[in-house]
Design a protein around this nucleic acid. Structure first.
Lengths: 226, 226
DNA sequence: ATCCTAACGCGACGGTCGTCGCTCTTGGCT
DNA sequence: AGCCAAGAGCGACGACCGTCGCGTTAGGAT
Protein backbone atom coordinates (compact mmCIF):
# COMPACT_ATOMS: atom_id res chain seq x y z
CA UNK A 1 0.00 0.00 0.00
CA UNK A 2 1.18 3.45 -0.73
CA UNK A 3 1.68 6.09 1.86
CA UNK A 4 -1.42 6.34 4.03
CA UNK A 5 -0.51 9.94 4.68
CA UNK A 6 -2.63 11.18 1.82
CA UNK A 7 -5.66 9.17 2.75
CA UNK A 8 -8.50 10.81 0.78
CA UNK A 9 -8.59 9.61 -2.81
CA UNK A 10 -5.48 11.50 -3.89
CA UNK A 11 -5.94 9.34 -6.91
CA UNK A 12 -2.90 10.33 -8.87
CA UNK A 13 -0.52 12.68 -7.11
CA UNK A 14 2.49 11.64 -9.13
CA UNK A 15 4.65 13.01 -11.92
CA UNK A 16 2.74 15.18 -14.32
CA UNK A 17 0.01 16.23 -11.92
CA UNK A 18 2.56 17.40 -9.40
CA UNK A 19 4.53 19.15 -12.10
CA UNK A 20 1.47 21.03 -13.31
CA UNK A 21 0.64 22.05 -9.81
CA UNK A 22 4.13 23.39 -9.23
CA UNK A 23 4.06 25.32 -12.50
CA UNK A 24 0.70 26.84 -11.72
CA UNK A 25 1.58 27.87 -8.19
CA UNK A 26 4.82 29.40 -9.41
CA UNK A 27 2.84 31.29 -12.00
CA UNK A 28 0.43 32.56 -9.35
CA UNK A 29 3.28 33.89 -7.26
CA UNK A 30 4.88 35.53 -10.26
CA UNK A 31 1.67 37.12 -11.49
CA UNK A 32 0.88 38.30 -8.02
CA UNK A 33 4.30 39.88 -7.78
CA UNK A 34 4.19 41.79 -11.02
CA UNK A 35 0.50 42.57 -11.40
CA UNK A 36 -0.68 42.73 -7.83
CA UNK A 37 -3.61 40.91 -6.31
CA UNK A 38 -6.03 42.67 -8.58
CA UNK A 39 -4.36 41.64 -11.81
CA UNK A 40 -4.42 37.99 -10.86
CA UNK A 41 -6.47 36.22 -13.50
CA UNK A 42 -7.08 32.58 -14.31
CA UNK A 43 -6.14 33.12 -17.91
CA UNK A 44 -2.90 34.88 -17.03
CA UNK A 45 -1.88 32.15 -14.65
CA UNK A 46 -2.65 29.40 -17.14
CA UNK A 47 -0.71 31.09 -19.92
CA UNK A 48 2.30 31.79 -17.76
CA UNK A 49 2.27 28.26 -16.40
CA UNK A 50 2.19 26.87 -19.92
CA UNK A 51 -0.99 25.02 -19.10
CA UNK A 52 -4.44 25.04 -20.59
CA UNK A 53 -7.07 27.28 -19.01
CA UNK A 54 -9.48 24.42 -18.50
CA UNK A 55 -6.93 22.64 -16.36
CA UNK A 56 -6.64 25.54 -13.99
CA UNK A 57 -10.42 25.87 -13.78
CA UNK A 58 -10.86 22.17 -13.16
CA UNK A 59 -8.37 21.91 -10.34
CA UNK A 60 -8.66 25.27 -8.62
CA UNK A 61 -12.14 26.49 -9.54
CA UNK A 62 -11.38 30.22 -9.17
CA UNK A 63 -8.82 32.80 -8.10
CA UNK A 64 -9.65 32.16 -4.48
CA UNK A 65 -8.79 28.52 -4.91
CA UNK A 66 -5.41 29.42 -6.36
CA UNK A 67 -4.62 31.69 -3.46
CA UNK A 68 -5.71 29.12 -0.94
CA UNK A 69 -3.41 26.57 -2.46
CA UNK A 70 -0.49 28.96 -2.64
CA UNK A 71 -0.91 29.89 0.97
CA UNK A 72 -1.33 26.40 2.33
CA UNK A 73 1.59 25.30 0.19
CA UNK A 74 3.70 28.07 1.67
CA UNK A 75 4.34 25.76 4.57
CA UNK A 76 2.40 27.99 6.91
CA UNK A 77 2.22 24.99 9.16
CA UNK A 78 5.53 25.44 10.89
CA UNK A 79 5.03 29.05 11.80
CA UNK A 80 5.94 29.87 15.36
CA UNK A 81 4.80 32.81 17.45
CA UNK A 82 7.58 35.09 18.64
CA UNK A 83 9.26 34.52 21.99
CA UNK A 84 11.15 37.55 23.21
CA UNK A 85 10.79 36.94 26.91
CA UNK A 86 8.15 39.54 27.67
CA UNK A 87 4.54 39.94 26.68
CA UNK A 88 4.89 43.45 25.27
CA UNK A 89 7.93 42.30 23.36
CA UNK A 90 6.11 39.29 21.96
CA UNK A 91 3.09 41.30 20.91
CA UNK A 92 5.24 43.98 19.37
CA UNK A 93 7.15 41.42 17.36
CA UNK A 94 3.88 39.84 16.30
CA UNK A 95 2.51 43.18 15.19
CA UNK A 96 5.65 43.99 13.27
CA UNK A 97 5.34 40.69 11.50
CA UNK A 98 1.73 41.44 10.62
CA UNK A 99 2.55 44.92 9.44
CA UNK A 100 5.31 43.52 7.31
CA UNK A 101 3.00 40.95 5.77
CA UNK A 102 0.57 43.68 4.77
CA UNK A 103 3.15 46.05 3.37
CA UNK A 104 5.47 43.72 1.52
CA UNK A 105 5.00 43.38 -2.21
CA UNK A 106 3.24 41.24 -3.10
CA UNK A 107 1.09 40.94 -0.02
CA UNK A 108 -0.47 37.53 0.11
CA UNK A 109 -2.44 38.57 3.13
CA UNK A 110 -4.00 41.46 1.25
CA UNK A 111 -4.63 39.30 -1.80
CA UNK A 112 -6.37 36.73 0.35
CA UNK A 113 -8.54 39.37 1.94
CA UNK A 114 -9.55 40.71 -1.44
CA UNK A 115 -10.29 37.23 -2.73
CA UNK A 116 -12.33 36.38 0.33
CA UNK A 117 -15.00 38.77 -0.89
CA UNK A 118 -15.47 36.84 -4.12
CA UNK A 119 -14.74 33.28 -3.18
CA UNK A 120 -16.36 31.40 -0.37
CA UNK A 121 -13.45 29.02 -0.50
CA UNK A 122 -10.98 31.83 0.06
CA UNK A 123 -13.11 33.27 2.83
CA UNK A 124 -13.09 30.01 4.72
CA UNK A 125 -9.38 29.59 4.22
CA UNK A 126 -8.80 33.05 5.57
CA UNK A 127 -10.91 32.44 8.63
CA UNK A 128 -9.15 29.18 9.25
CA UNK A 129 -5.75 30.78 8.88
CA UNK A 130 -6.43 33.56 11.36
CA UNK A 131 -8.15 31.28 13.81
CA UNK A 132 -5.19 28.93 13.81
CA UNK A 133 -2.75 31.75 14.23
CA UNK A 134 -4.58 33.21 17.17
CA UNK A 135 -4.83 29.80 18.77
CA UNK A 136 -1.11 29.36 18.40
CA UNK A 137 -0.51 32.77 19.90
CA UNK A 138 -2.42 32.04 23.03
CA UNK A 139 0.77 30.56 24.39
CA UNK A 140 2.17 34.08 24.54
CA UNK A 141 -0.39 34.98 27.14
CA UNK A 142 0.11 31.75 29.03
CA UNK A 143 3.82 32.38 29.24
CA UNK A 144 3.18 35.92 30.45
CA UNK A 145 0.92 34.58 33.17
CA UNK A 146 3.59 32.11 34.24
CA UNK A 147 6.14 34.89 34.38
CA UNK A 148 3.78 36.86 36.59
CA UNK A 149 3.34 39.69 34.12
CA UNK A 150 -0.41 39.56 34.41
CA UNK A 151 -2.10 39.64 37.82
CA UNK A 152 -4.61 37.24 39.21
CA UNK A 153 -7.81 37.64 37.17
CA UNK A 154 -6.22 36.25 34.04
CA UNK A 155 -7.39 37.76 30.79
CA UNK A 156 -8.99 35.86 27.97
CA UNK A 157 -6.06 35.22 25.68
CA UNK A 158 -7.98 35.56 22.45
CA UNK A 159 -9.48 38.92 23.36
CA UNK A 160 -6.13 40.26 24.39
CA UNK A 161 -4.53 39.14 21.16
CA UNK A 162 -7.28 40.64 19.05
CA UNK A 163 -7.05 43.94 20.89
CA UNK A 164 -3.30 44.03 20.38
CA UNK A 165 -3.31 43.22 16.67
CA UNK A 166 -6.54 44.65 15.33
CA UNK A 167 -5.31 48.25 15.10
CA UNK A 168 -2.61 47.22 12.64
CA UNK A 169 -5.12 45.87 10.17
CA UNK A 170 -7.37 48.80 10.82
CA UNK A 171 -4.73 51.35 9.92
CA UNK A 172 -3.30 49.56 6.94
CA UNK A 173 -6.36 48.03 5.35
CA UNK A 174 -9.30 50.20 6.24
CA UNK A 175 -7.68 53.56 6.74
CA UNK A 176 -4.97 52.84 4.17
CA UNK A 177 -2.46 54.75 6.20
CA UNK A 178 1.20 54.19 5.49
CA UNK A 179 3.00 51.78 7.79
CA UNK A 180 3.82 53.45 11.09
CA UNK A 181 6.96 51.95 12.62
CA UNK A 182 5.73 52.96 16.06
CA UNK A 183 2.29 51.46 15.81
CA UNK A 184 3.17 47.82 16.51
CA UNK A 185 4.75 48.75 19.80
CA UNK A 186 2.04 51.20 20.77
CA UNK A 187 -0.80 48.81 20.07
CA UNK A 188 0.95 46.04 21.96
CA UNK A 189 1.58 48.30 24.94
CA UNK A 190 -2.01 49.48 25.03
CA UNK A 191 -3.34 45.94 25.07
CA UNK A 192 -1.00 44.91 27.86
CA UNK A 193 -1.93 47.94 29.93
CA UNK A 194 -5.61 47.18 29.44
CA UNK A 195 -5.06 43.58 30.46
CA UNK A 196 -3.12 44.62 33.55
CA UNK A 197 -5.97 46.94 34.44
CA UNK A 198 -8.42 44.09 34.35
CA UNK A 199 -9.79 44.11 30.82
CA UNK A 200 -10.32 40.91 28.81
CA UNK A 201 -11.43 38.88 31.77
CA UNK A 202 -12.36 35.41 30.65
CA UNK A 203 -16.02 35.32 29.53
CA UNK A 204 -17.39 32.30 31.36
CA UNK A 205 -14.49 30.39 32.75
CA UNK A 206 -14.76 28.81 36.18
CA UNK A 207 -17.38 31.19 37.42
CA UNK A 208 -16.30 33.01 40.50
CA UNK A 209 -17.53 36.20 42.01
CA UNK A 210 -15.59 38.06 39.35
CA UNK A 211 -18.59 37.44 37.17
CA UNK A 212 -20.83 39.46 39.33
CA UNK A 213 -18.24 42.19 39.63
CA UNK A 214 -17.93 42.45 35.87
CA UNK A 215 -21.66 42.64 35.38
CA UNK A 216 -21.80 45.50 37.82
CA UNK A 217 -19.03 47.37 36.14
CA UNK A 218 -20.44 46.99 32.70
CA UNK A 219 -23.84 48.03 33.85
CA UNK A 220 -22.34 51.20 35.26
CA UNK A 221 -20.40 51.74 32.03
CA UNK A 222 -23.63 51.65 30.20
CA UNK A 223 -25.40 54.40 32.00
CA UNK A 224 -24.36 57.96 31.43
CA UNK A 225 -25.56 61.22 32.89
CA UNK A 226 -26.55 62.75 29.55
CA UNK B 1 -13.75 72.44 0.62
CA UNK B 2 -15.67 71.85 -2.57
CA UNK B 3 -15.62 68.29 -3.69
CA UNK B 4 -13.96 67.98 -7.10
CA UNK B 5 -16.24 65.08 -7.80
CA UNK B 6 -19.53 66.87 -7.56
CA UNK B 7 -18.91 70.59 -7.84
CA UNK B 8 -17.15 71.16 -11.18
CA UNK B 9 -19.45 72.57 -13.87
CA UNK B 10 -22.59 70.67 -13.00
CA UNK B 11 -23.46 71.52 -16.53
CA UNK B 12 -26.92 70.13 -16.62
CA UNK B 13 -28.24 68.94 -13.30
CA UNK B 14 -31.85 69.31 -14.30
CA UNK B 15 -34.78 67.10 -15.27
CA UNK B 16 -33.75 64.01 -17.12
CA UNK B 17 -30.22 63.85 -15.76
CA UNK B 18 -31.46 64.03 -12.22
CA UNK B 19 -34.17 61.51 -12.96
CA UNK B 20 -31.68 59.04 -14.38
CA UNK B 21 -29.44 59.46 -11.39
CA UNK B 22 -32.29 58.80 -9.01
CA UNK B 23 -33.35 55.71 -10.95
CA UNK B 24 -29.83 54.33 -10.96
CA UNK B 25 -29.17 54.95 -7.28
CA UNK B 26 -32.47 53.35 -6.40
CA UNK B 27 -31.51 50.39 -8.53
CA UNK B 28 -28.18 50.12 -6.75
CA UNK B 29 -29.87 50.02 -3.38
CA UNK B 30 -32.38 47.46 -4.54
CA UNK B 31 -29.79 45.22 -6.16
CA UNK B 32 -27.62 45.48 -3.11
CA UNK B 33 -30.52 44.47 -0.93
CA UNK B 34 -31.55 41.42 -2.87
CA UNK B 35 -28.29 40.19 -4.34
CA UNK B 36 -25.75 41.38 -1.80
CA UNK B 37 -22.60 43.33 -2.44
CA UNK B 38 -21.15 40.60 -4.58
CA UNK B 39 -24.06 40.43 -6.97
CA UNK B 40 -23.91 44.12 -7.66
CA UNK B 41 -23.19 44.46 -11.36
CA UNK B 42 -23.24 47.37 -13.77
CA UNK B 43 -25.50 45.52 -16.16
CA UNK B 44 -27.94 44.55 -13.44
CA UNK B 45 -28.18 48.10 -12.20
CA UNK B 46 -28.67 49.50 -15.69
CA UNK B 47 -31.40 47.02 -16.52
CA UNK B 48 -33.26 47.53 -13.29
CA UNK B 49 -32.99 51.28 -13.63
CA UNK B 50 -34.40 51.08 -17.14
CA UNK B 51 -31.33 52.81 -18.45
CA UNK B 52 -28.75 51.89 -21.04
CA UNK B 53 -25.55 50.25 -19.83
CA UNK B 54 -23.37 52.84 -21.51
CA UNK B 55 -25.02 55.57 -19.48
CA UNK B 56 -24.11 53.93 -16.24
CA UNK B 57 -20.54 53.34 -17.38
CA UNK B 58 -20.18 56.92 -18.56
CA UNK B 59 -21.39 58.55 -15.39
CA UNK B 60 -20.17 56.16 -12.71
CA UNK B 61 -17.29 54.36 -14.32
CA UNK B 62 -17.51 51.21 -12.17
CA UNK B 63 -19.22 49.56 -9.23
CA UNK B 64 -17.08 51.52 -6.85
CA UNK B 65 -18.35 54.74 -8.37
CA UNK B 66 -21.92 53.65 -7.85
CA UNK B 67 -21.32 52.86 -4.23
CA UNK B 68 -19.54 56.12 -3.64
CA UNK B 69 -22.47 58.01 -5.05
CA UNK B 70 -25.02 56.04 -3.08
CA UNK B 71 -23.15 56.66 0.12
CA UNK B 72 -22.55 60.35 -0.38
CA UNK B 73 -26.17 60.71 -1.47
CA UNK B 74 -27.27 59.01 1.74
CA UNK B 75 -26.57 62.24 3.57
CA UNK B 76 -23.83 60.69 5.61
CA UNK B 77 -22.72 64.22 6.24
CA UNK B 78 -24.94 64.94 9.18
CA UNK B 79 -23.93 61.93 11.18
CA UNK B 80 -23.28 62.70 14.81
CA UNK B 81 -21.19 60.71 17.27
CA UNK B 82 -23.04 59.34 20.30
CA UNK B 83 -23.24 61.30 23.52
CA UNK B 84 -24.21 59.16 26.48
CA UNK B 85 -22.43 61.13 29.14
CA UNK B 86 -19.52 58.79 29.74
CA UNK B 87 -16.59 57.72 27.63
CA UNK B 88 -17.20 53.99 27.97
CA UNK B 89 -20.83 54.58 27.17
CA UNK B 90 -20.02 56.62 24.10
CA UNK B 91 -17.51 54.09 22.80
CA UNK B 92 -19.88 51.24 23.46
CA UNK B 93 -22.63 52.98 21.55
CA UNK B 94 -20.23 53.73 18.73
CA UNK B 95 -19.16 50.10 18.57
CA UNK B 96 -22.73 48.92 18.57
CA UNK B 97 -23.45 51.22 15.69
CA UNK B 98 -20.45 49.88 13.80
CA UNK B 99 -21.40 46.30 14.48
CA UNK B 100 -24.88 47.03 13.31
CA UNK B 101 -23.62 48.59 10.09
CA UNK B 102 -21.60 45.49 9.33
CA UNK B 103 -24.33 43.01 10.13
CA UNK B 104 -27.38 44.67 8.66
CA UNK B 105 -28.54 43.55 5.23
CA UNK B 106 -27.47 45.06 2.95
CA UNK B 107 -24.27 46.30 4.51
CA UNK B 108 -23.02 49.34 2.67
CA UNK B 109 -19.90 49.31 4.79
CA UNK B 110 -19.10 45.77 3.71
CA UNK B 111 -19.91 46.54 0.10
CA UNK B 112 -17.63 49.51 0.15
CA UNK B 113 -14.83 47.46 1.64
CA UNK B 114 -15.22 44.82 -1.02
CA UNK B 115 -15.31 47.40 -3.77
CA UNK B 116 -12.26 49.19 -2.41
CA UNK B 117 -10.16 46.27 -3.57
CA UNK B 118 -11.21 46.78 -7.19
CA UNK B 119 -11.83 50.45 -7.50
CA UNK B 120 -9.42 53.18 -6.59
CA UNK B 121 -12.38 55.50 -6.37
CA UNK B 122 -14.06 53.30 -3.79
CA UNK B 123 -10.83 52.95 -1.88
CA UNK B 124 -10.43 56.68 -1.57
CA UNK B 125 -14.05 57.10 -0.59
CA UNK B 126 -13.65 54.52 2.11
CA UNK B 127 -10.54 56.16 3.49
CA UNK B 128 -12.21 59.53 3.45
CA UNK B 129 -15.31 58.20 5.16
CA UNK B 130 -13.42 56.59 8.03
CA UNK B 131 -11.04 59.48 8.43
CA UNK B 132 -13.93 61.90 8.72
CA UNK B 133 -15.73 59.71 11.17
CA UNK B 134 -12.73 59.37 13.41
CA UNK B 135 -12.14 63.09 13.27
CA UNK B 136 -15.72 63.69 14.32
CA UNK B 137 -15.37 61.21 17.14
CA UNK B 138 -12.38 62.93 18.66
CA UNK B 139 -14.85 65.09 20.51
CA UNK B 140 -15.79 62.05 22.57
CA UNK B 141 -12.32 62.01 24.04
CA UNK B 142 -12.27 65.75 24.54
CA UNK B 143 -15.52 65.58 26.45
CA UNK B 144 -14.16 62.76 28.59
CA UNK B 145 -11.10 64.84 29.39
CA UNK B 146 -13.27 67.76 30.38
CA UNK B 147 -15.31 65.50 32.62
CA UNK B 148 -12.11 64.35 34.26
CA UNK B 149 -12.50 60.75 33.14
CA UNK B 150 -8.98 60.66 31.82
CA UNK B 151 -6.05 61.73 33.98
CA UNK B 152 -3.39 64.27 33.18
CA UNK B 153 -1.28 62.84 30.33
CA UNK B 154 -4.11 63.02 27.85
CA UNK B 155 -4.26 60.27 25.28
CA UNK B 156 -4.12 60.76 21.56
CA UNK B 157 -7.78 60.70 20.62
CA UNK B 158 -7.32 58.96 17.30
CA UNK B 159 -5.28 56.11 18.75
CA UNK B 160 -7.79 55.59 21.50
CA UNK B 161 -10.67 55.48 19.04
CA UNK B 162 -8.90 53.04 16.77
CA UNK B 163 -8.09 50.77 19.67
CA UNK B 164 -11.70 50.83 20.80
CA UNK B 165 -13.27 50.13 17.44
CA UNK B 166 -10.75 47.99 15.57
CA UNK B 167 -11.66 44.73 17.29
CA UNK B 168 -15.20 44.96 15.94
CA UNK B 169 -14.05 45.02 12.34
CA UNK B 170 -11.49 42.39 13.11
CA UNK B 171 -14.03 39.94 14.44
CA UNK B 172 -16.73 40.53 11.86
CA UNK B 173 -14.73 41.07 8.70
CA UNK B 174 -11.49 39.22 9.10
CA UNK B 175 -12.43 36.45 11.46
CA UNK B 176 -16.01 36.30 10.18
CA UNK B 177 -17.30 35.57 13.62
CA UNK B 178 -20.96 36.14 14.29
CA UNK B 179 -21.85 39.41 15.97
CA UNK B 180 -21.14 39.22 19.68
CA UNK B 181 -23.49 41.47 21.65
CA UNK B 182 -20.90 41.75 24.40
CA UNK B 183 -18.00 42.73 22.20
CA UNK B 184 -18.83 46.42 21.74
CA UNK B 185 -18.84 46.97 25.46
CA UNK B 186 -15.78 44.86 26.09
CA UNK B 187 -13.70 46.53 23.45
CA UNK B 188 -14.74 49.96 24.63
CA UNK B 189 -13.91 49.10 28.20
CA UNK B 190 -10.51 47.74 27.30
CA UNK B 191 -9.59 50.88 25.42
CA UNK B 192 -10.68 53.11 28.27
CA UNK B 193 -8.72 51.06 30.78
CA UNK B 194 -5.65 51.24 28.58
CA UNK B 195 -6.04 54.98 28.25
CA UNK B 196 -6.46 55.41 31.99
CA UNK B 197 -3.30 53.37 32.47
CA UNK B 198 -1.35 55.75 30.28
CA UNK B 199 -1.54 54.24 26.83
CA UNK B 200 -2.13 56.34 23.69
CA UNK B 201 -0.11 59.27 24.90
CA UNK B 202 0.00 61.92 22.22
CA UNK B 203 2.81 61.13 19.75
CA UNK B 204 4.66 64.43 19.51
CA UNK B 205 2.45 67.00 21.05
CA UNK B 206 3.95 69.69 23.31
CA UNK B 207 7.03 67.69 24.07
CA UNK B 208 7.53 67.24 27.75
CA UNK B 209 9.60 64.78 29.66
CA UNK B 210 6.90 62.22 29.01
CA UNK B 211 8.67 61.69 25.71
CA UNK B 212 11.78 60.50 27.39
CA UNK B 213 9.82 58.37 29.75
CA UNK B 214 8.01 56.69 26.92
CA UNK B 215 11.21 56.05 25.00
CA UNK B 216 12.63 54.36 28.04
CA UNK B 217 9.58 52.23 28.54
CA UNK B 218 9.44 51.17 24.98
CA UNK B 219 13.09 50.35 24.93
CA UNK B 220 12.57 48.11 27.90
CA UNK B 221 9.50 46.60 26.25
CA UNK B 222 11.64 45.69 23.36
CA UNK B 223 14.24 43.63 25.15
CA UNK B 224 13.35 40.22 26.43
CA UNK B 225 15.30 37.60 28.30
CA UNK B 226 14.83 34.84 25.72
C1' DA C 1 4.40 -5.55 -20.48
C1' DT C 2 -0.26 -4.33 -20.31
C1' DC C 3 -4.42 -2.14 -19.07
C1' DC C 4 -7.34 1.36 -16.99
C1' DT C 5 -8.55 5.72 -16.20
C1' DA C 6 -7.29 10.19 -13.88
C1' DA C 7 -5.76 14.16 -15.53
C1' DC C 8 -4.46 17.22 -19.23
C1' DG C 9 -4.84 19.30 -24.04
C1' DC C 10 -7.75 21.31 -27.18
C1' DG C 11 -11.19 24.02 -29.59
C1' DA C 12 -15.57 25.91 -29.50
C1' DC C 13 -19.48 27.76 -27.33
C1' DG C 14 -22.42 31.20 -25.04
C1' DG C 15 -22.37 34.80 -21.76
C1' DT C 16 -20.67 39.00 -19.74
C1' DC C 17 -17.93 43.11 -19.71
C1' DG C 18 -16.41 47.65 -21.00
C1' DT C 19 -15.89 50.77 -24.94
C1' DC C 20 -16.90 53.32 -29.05
C1' DG C 21 -19.19 56.10 -32.62
C1' DC C 22 -23.24 57.57 -33.82
C1' DT C 23 -27.97 59.53 -33.42
C1' DC C 24 -31.64 61.53 -30.87
C1' DT C 25 -33.60 63.89 -27.02
C1' DT C 26 -34.05 67.67 -24.01
C1' DG C 27 -32.57 71.02 -20.33
C1' DG C 28 -31.14 75.63 -20.08
C1' DC C 29 -30.10 79.96 -22.14
C1' DT C 30 -31.01 83.78 -25.13
C1' DA D 1 -39.72 80.45 -29.70
C1' DG D 2 -35.43 78.79 -31.16
C1' DC D 3 -30.74 77.31 -30.59
C1' DC D 4 -27.20 74.10 -29.07
C1' DA D 5 -24.65 71.23 -26.64
C1' DA D 6 -24.88 67.97 -22.55
C1' DG D 7 -26.26 63.84 -21.97
C1' DA D 8 -29.01 59.64 -22.94
C1' DG D 9 -30.19 55.88 -26.35
C1' DC D 10 -28.57 52.46 -29.34
C1' DG D 11 -26.10 48.71 -31.53
C1' DA D 12 -21.88 46.62 -32.45
C1' DC D 13 -17.28 45.47 -31.42
C1' DG D 14 -13.50 42.94 -29.25
C1' DA D 15 -11.78 41.02 -25.09
C1' DC D 16 -12.36 38.05 -21.50
C1' DC D 17 -14.56 34.52 -18.76
C1' DG D 18 -16.16 29.97 -17.49
C1' DT D 19 -17.84 25.57 -19.31
C1' DC D 20 -18.29 21.59 -22.12
C1' DG D 21 -17.29 17.34 -24.86
C1' DC D 22 -14.06 14.78 -26.77
C1' DG D 23 -9.53 13.00 -27.89
C1' DT D 24 -4.82 12.14 -25.96
C1' DT D 25 -1.32 11.27 -22.53
C1' DA D 26 0.75 9.04 -18.90
C1' DG D 27 0.46 7.47 -13.61
C1' DG D 28 -0.06 3.50 -11.19
C1' DA D 29 -1.60 -1.05 -10.42
C1' DT D 30 -1.76 -5.84 -12.02
Amino acid sequence: MTDPLASPPDRRPGGRTARVRAQVLDAVRAELAERGHEGLTMEGVATRAGVHRATVYRRWRDVGGLLVDVITAAGEIDWQPPDTGSLPGDLTALNEEIQQSLVVQPSFALALMAASFHSEQAARAQTRLWTDRYAQCEVLVERAVERGELPAPHPDARSLLVAATAPIYHQLVLLRAGPDPRLPRRAARAAVLAAAAGAFRAPRQDREESDREESDREESDREGSA
